[in-house]
Design a protein around this nucleic acid. Sequence first.
DNA 1: TTTAGCACTTGTCAACAAAAAGTGCTAAAA
DNA 2: TTTTAGCACTTTTTGTTGACAAGTGCTAAA
Lengths: 329, 329
Amino acid sequence: MLTERQNKILKIIVERYIKEPVPVGSKTISKELNCSSATIRNEMGELENQGLLEKTHTSSGRVPSEAGYRYYVDNLMELKEMNAEDMLKLQIVFKNQQLALSDVITKSLQVISDMTNYTAVVLGGTSHENLLKQIEVVPIDDVRMIVIIVTDKGHVEHKQIQLEGVEIEEIKKTVGLINNLISGTPIDEVSKKLEFEIKPIIGKYVKQHEQLYNAFYHVFTDFTNQEVNVMGRDKMLEQPEFSSNIEKVKNVFHKLEDDVLINNIVEDDENNIKVYIGNENNIDSDVTVIQTKYKKGGQEGTIAIIGPKRMEYDRVVSMLEYIKENIER
Amino acid sequence: MLTERQNKILKIIVERYIKEPVPVGSKTISKELNCSSATIRNEMGELENQGLLEKTHTSSGRVPSEAGYRYYVDNLMELKEMNAEDMLKLQIVFKNQQLALSDVITKSLQVISDMTNYTAVVLGGTSHENLLKQIEVVPIDDVRMIVIIVTDKGHVEHKQIQLEGVEIEEIKKTVGLINNLISGTPIDEVSKKLEFEIKPIIGKYVKQHEQLYNAFYHVFTDFTNQEVNVMGRDKMLEQPEFSSNIEKVKNVFHKLEDDVLINNIVEDDENNIKVYIGNENNIDSDVTVIQTKYKKGGQEGTIAIIGPKRMEYDRVVSMLEYIKENIER
DNA sequence: TTTAGCACTTGTCAACAAAAAGTGCTAAAA
DNA sequence: TTTTAGCACTTTTTGTTGACAAGTGCTAAA
């Protein structure tokens, strides 16, 4: 357990270091607290023993360790009301009645990314929670057509297929069957149902059923399950810890390029706002991910902010809180 | 006009520099050509006078200037048959019958990006060339529904709208009117036609026409016109000229983050494969963009590779040629 | 328990020297 | 007239040295 003074010292160091990435020395702190630098030095030594502070070299001020940030976020951070200016900019997005939910989310995270200089990520809901609502087929020309799949949560997916010499009436029949018989099925079970419930029927009643079945089968197996939207990747370069270390940047950018990796930036998938510092996330030991889930009338997804470990935790957490709140009502 | 020997020297310098970003000295070249370093020095001086070579400082080997690369691409570069290994990897993508055209294009450019360590860009066709083919409406629940727009080129766009207390029959009527009356209209003229041809009719025959009209009007004005797909942004960092210059990286990444800027990486929109070196493109004076358009059965789009000015021009051009050919048949 | 004082460590910066790479020019050779 | 050998000159790179600043840990006194 830390003493009151140790808490104070740790808080000052973390907050100073977040403001400016310069190790904090004992003298600086002694000016803010009513005691001498020697006292502070003793306390800092103790905090270092506890693993909350680190030195960059034998003799330079202290820097928060990963555990130090963790302790700060869990015990010392004070969430303040959001800055009026920040709030105003977000309000403009939320007040826009024209935008669909997904656009509101994307736009508001874009705003956060611009204001904070951190990278923002929006992940769409996972496919296994989506149920097939309806499919539609729109012919483009004699052979090509678009198959459109809509889920109960409003997710839309489309694929182009080619069917040579298949009569339009037969296609309509098949679409009708699918809509009547397997609407309401979880998306990732559709191909199974297609095989066992639709195939036998169209095998009897529909001409060219082989071709038709294959086409639809592929449409559903290729269903891409996740919408991934990363905004402000370039913001990462504004952070001094990265702009001076190309190797770090390479690693982070590599992760940000790969949709599969982005989907796994953190292990769990909390409903609350959760902070994953350094090794707690799967991107890089030098970044922090602040993440939360939103749910709104059946639709759900994940939003996250990625920044350096010395990110402005309080600011980002209150922004995400504000956004989540606004999305959900 | 350059002499035969000057051509040879320039070619050697460009190709050596592309292989390894080290200024090329006279001694190196004298070993490849049958003459002394002093002779080469004289020739190099002349090439520098002509603006084709540059020095990084008063006394270090020469480096190709922008004009030098231009001259190389226009006059000296020899397109060789594509490397068998490269071709094999691309063949795997093209042979996959399951993939829709757009996926084939994306995947093959992803392969190119991985093989070359350059960034790849795919741009969908421009909207003003798309004609409205058909719209569909799929209700999600009592108030929300999805409007799906399909163009004659197979482009699909969807928007979620909310209509409170509007009868489903009225919606169907409106959709039918739109499909019957303004199908075939260029997408960017649809909102006009909606106002002058649809609004008066539904004003007479459809209940709640005000709400309905507004909803559809917004769907079409928000039509996002371009699909932008950037792959392998992180590859840029593998290029030594960028990994040693954070400011350059910042600029390039900023451009690559902004869909609008990506659409304007080069001024014109050639059908052939065209090389835009340094200031000839709108990204950065230190990058080259190699770009071409593809057309396949009404669908068209642009593909481009972005790399450093010292990119492997011959390799990338033959790869793009190969891809374009494979897409178009 | 706190503080003043001091020796010690480490990083940063500037100045300087030596080595490496390559040039331009001159004068001789082909 | 063209090519080449030779040499003085530039610039970058690398390493060394020394001074200075910032900050620590420890000791002994308050």
